[in-house]
Amino acid sequence: MIGLLMKTFSSILFILFLFSAQLHAHKWMTRMGKISFYSSTPVENIEAVNNQISALLETQTGDVAFVVPIRGFKFEKALMQEHFNENYMESEQFPKATFKGTIVEYEKVDFTKYGKYIVTVKGQLTIHGVTKFVTITGALQVEKNSTTIASKFLVKPADYNIKIPSIAASKIAEKIEVTVDCKLNPTRDK
């Protein structure tokens, strides 16, 4: 009798487990994420926005990946955009920036519990063909049908072999503030 109960109980558990696995997608993604950057100097402020970021989050492993098409950055002035692409980022040669990393202690993030989680991500940031290991803090906003990844961090152009001629040096900050704001949706594929 007890054996039968146990059997029924475990099969119910198993069914519940299957069910919950189906309810919660393991892959969240977007192809329309947003990244902007801001350079501030006494001479001028420069801002650019990109709404064409691909971002992927795997909730089972805590892996995150971002692909940023450099030509997707839009500036206020056409001339700035031209200089950014042709002189500094050399986007014909290096059309994408990427980040591949893992959330540290991702098991602390409960994707079934809505709310905001502050996380640290470690990984490889590639800009202008140069790859660096970085640690970035950010926030995950878990909601019913979306998870938003938000972060603000500084990037030094010199670290990525981005050469700024002395004539422009006073107009471009030594450290550029990058803001990530990507709203991810669950994917249907298993």
Binding site: R31, Q52, I53, S54, P69, I70, R71, G72, P95, K96
Partner: peptide, 8 residues
């Protein structure tokens, strides 16, 4: 403006 998982 390039290619990520789709052409942009």
């Amino acid at each position: 403006s390039g290619y990520t998982t789709v052409v942009l």
